[in-house]
C-alpha cells in the first residue's frame, strides 16, 4: 500500500513538472521570430518557397477549386478587412454608382487600356459557387460572377518579361507607419486559372461595397487575403521589389506568406 501511495505522489509531481515545463516553454522566448529581419525567420520562411514549388509541381495548373451547389449558400458572404473605404476618389465613384469607374491595365503589356464597368459586364462571364477560406481559419460559401482575368490578359497581350500580376486597390490600411493602399499579387499560373475572375456579382446581385465593389479579384485556390477588393489597376510586372516593402502585397509586407495556397 505504502508503495502505491509513494508512486501516486511521484505521479502528481511528475505531472506538475511536465505541465509547468510546457507552460514555461511558450512565454516570450521565441518572440524574436516576429522580427522580419531575423536570420532564424529567414530560414523558417524557406518552407513557404518549398510549399509554393511543391504545390505547383503536384497540382495541375488548371485544377479547379471545388464548386458547390446553390443549397450550400447558407449565409451572406462575411465581409472582412476593409468594408467601407473612405478615400475621396472612392467616395466620388461610389456616389455616382461607379458609372465613372475605370479599371486600368498597365505595366508589361503590349496594349495598355481601361475598362469601364459596363465593358467588363458585357464580356463573357463566369459564375462559380466557391468556398472562401480566410487566413484566420473560417470559411464561407458564396456565388461569384465576373470576367475571367485570362481574357483581359489576352486582350492586352503580355510582354515576354511579365511574371506577376499586381492588383492595386482603393482601400487603405494602417501598416504601423501610416495608411497605405492595399495591393496584392499573383503569378501567371493563378492569373490565368479559369476560376480567376474580376468579380462584379455576389450571390446573384451586384457586388456590395462591403465585399469589394465595384471589382474584386477571386483567386479561388488561395486564402482570402489574395482576393483584393476595390481594385482600380492591374499592373503586369517582372518583380515587385519596388512596391511597398517589396514582398508583393500589403499583408506580405507585414510578414504573411506571398504564396497563399496554404
Amino acid at each position: 500500500m505504502s508503495k502505491i501511495m509513494l508512486t501516486r505522489r511521484k505521479l502528481l509531481v511528475t505531472g506538475a513538472a511536465g505541465a509547468s515545463s510546457l507552460v514555461l516553454g511558450g512565454c516570450d522566448t521565441f518572440d524574436f521570430l516576429s522580427q522580419n529581419d531575423s536570420a532564424a525567420r529567414a530560414v523558417l520562411e524557406k518552407a513557404n518557397d518549398l510549399t509554393y514549388h511543391a504545390q505547383r509541381l503536384l497540382i495541375r495548373n488548371g485544377a479547379l477549386a471545388t464548386e458547390y451547389s446553390e443549397t450550400e449558400i447558407r449565409q451572406g458572404q462575411r465581409p472582412n478587412g476593409s468594408t467601407d473605404p473612405q478615400t475621396n476618389e472612392y467616395l466620388t465613384l461610389k456616389d455616382n454608382g461607379f458609372a465613372d469607374y475605370r479599371l486600368s491595365v498597365t505595366g508589361l503589356v503590349e496594349r495598355p487600356r481601361n475598362y469601364s464597368l459596363s465593358e467588363l459586364r458585357n464580356m463573357p462571364s463566369r459564375t462559380q459557387i466557391t468556398r472562401h477560406d480566410c487566413v484566420e481559419g473560417w470559411s464561407c460559401i458564396a456565388k461569384w460572377t465576373g470576367t475571367p482575368l485570362s481574357r483581359i490578359l489576352d486582350e492586352v497581350g503580355l510582354k515576354p518579361n511579365a511574371r506577376f500580376v499586381v492588383f492595386h486597390c482603393y482601400d487603405k490600411y494602417d501598416d504601423n507607419a501610416g495608411a497605405v493602399p492595399y495591393y496584392e499579387s499573383c503569378d501567371l499560373v493563378d492569373a490565368r486559372h479559369p476560376q480567376t475572375i474580376l468579380a462584379y456579382g455576389l450571390n446573384g446581385e451586384s457586388l456590395p461595397v462591403a465585399n469589394g465593389a465595384p471589382i474584386r479579384v477571386r483567386i479561388e485556390r488561395a486564402l482570402g487575403y489574395k482576393q483584393p477588393k476595390y481594385v482600380h489597376t492591374i499592373e503586369l510586372v517582372d518583380s515587385f521589389a519596388h512596391m511597398g516593402r517589396g514582398k508583393g502585397g500589403f499583408w506580405e509586407d507585414l510578414g504573411y506568406d506571398w504564396y497563399a495556397g496554404i
Binding site: 511558450g26 512565454c27 521565441f30 520562411e45 518552407a47 513557404n48 484566420e136 510578414g255
Partner: peptide, 24 residues
C-alpha cells in the same frame, strides 16, 4: 493564453511561418 503560444503576443503571420516550417 500567451504562455502557450509562439509568439507570446498575437501574431498570426509568424505563427504560420513557424508552423509550416516544422510541419515540413
Amino acid at each position: 493564453p500567451a504562455a502557450l503560444t509562439i509568439p507570446s503576443y498575437r501574431d498570426l503571420a509568424t505563427g504560420r511561418v513557424v508552423h509550416f516550417f516544422f510541419a515540413w
